[in-house]
Amino acid sequence: MRGVHTLLIIYAILLIVGLTVPGMWQPVAFLMFYVALGQAFNIFLGLTGYVDFGYVAFLALGSYGMAIAMDSLYQTGLGAAILPIGLLLAALMSIMLSLAVGAVALRLRGAYFAIATIGVNEGFRYLIEGARLWGGSEGIIITGAMRKIFGREMANFISTMVADVLVFGIGLLAALTTYVIIHKRMGYALMAIREDEDAARVMGINVTKYKIMAFITSAFFAGLIGASAWTLKMTYVFPSDVFLITYTVEAIVIVMLGGAGTLLGPVVGGITYGLLKYYLSVILPGFQLLILAPLLVAIVVAFPEGIVGYLKERVRGTRFEGYIL
C-alpha cells in the first residue's frame, strides 16, 4: 500500500498548490491533463508493452460522446443529469471503438499491432469529415446548450473548474485501477505477456483476452478524459482538434519518461513533461519542440526504464522499497 501513499501525497500537493496559490489552478490543471493521459495510457502501454498509435481516437470519441449528449438532450429538461449521461456516453463510445479495434488488431504481435493502429485515428477523422457525421468538419459547439442546461454562471464554473476536477479524479481512478490490476492475476498475466508472449501462452494465459481487457480499461479512462478535458472545458469539439496524433505521441513520451508499467511513472512523467513544455514555451516561445525533442531523447537514453523505473532499481533492498512502485 505504500506505493499508493506516495501517489496520494503527490496528488494532494498538486491539489493544495492549485487551490491555495492564486493563479495556479490553470497551470495545475494543465499538468493534471498530462498526468491523467499518462495514467490512462499506462494501463495499456505500460502493462501490456503494446504501443497504440491511434490512442487519441479514444479521447476524441469520448469528447464527441459528451458533445452529442449535451447537443441532443439540452431541450429535454433532464437538467444537470445530462452531465453524467454525457460521461456515460463518452465511456461507451470509447469502449465500443476499443472492442472493434482490439478484436482485430490485438491478434497481431508487437510492431504489427502498432502499424495497424496508425490508421484508426486518421481513418475516423476523415470518416467524420467526409461523411459529415456529427457536424462533419464544423464539429459540435455546445456553448449555448451548456448555458441552457446549467445557466450562464454554472456553465462557466463547469468549464473553468468542474472539468479540471473531473480530469483530476479520472487520473486518480486510473492510477488506483492500475494498482489493483498489478496485484491481481490479471496483472501477472499482463506481466507475462509483456515479458514473453509465447511462454505466457504455454503457461495457460489467454493472451488475447487479457490484452483486450487492458485495452478496454485504458480506452474507458481515455474517453472520460476527452469528455472532460476537451468538451466540457472548451465547450466545442472539432475533428481537426481532437484527432491529433500529437496527443498520442505525448502520451507515449509521458509513459516512457516516467516508467512504463509503474504506478508512479505517469504522475512523474506527466508533471515533468508538462513543466518542460510549459516553461520552454514561456522562455523560448516557438522553439519548445526543437528543444523538448532532443531533451526527451536524452532522458530516455539515460533512463531506459523511465525515471520511476530507475529509482525503483536504486531503492531495491533499502527501507524506501515499496514507496516507489
Binding site: H183, K184, R185, Y188, A189, E195, D196, A199, G204, I205
Partner: peptide, 26 residues
Amino acid sequence: PRPFPSATVRENVAVGAMFGRAQADV
C-alpha cells in the same frame, strides 16, 4: 529457457500456479 526476465523468480513460478491446472489465486 524462457523466463519472464524482469520479474522475480518467485513471481515467475507463481504465474505457473495461477494459470496452469492449479488455477490458484495470487
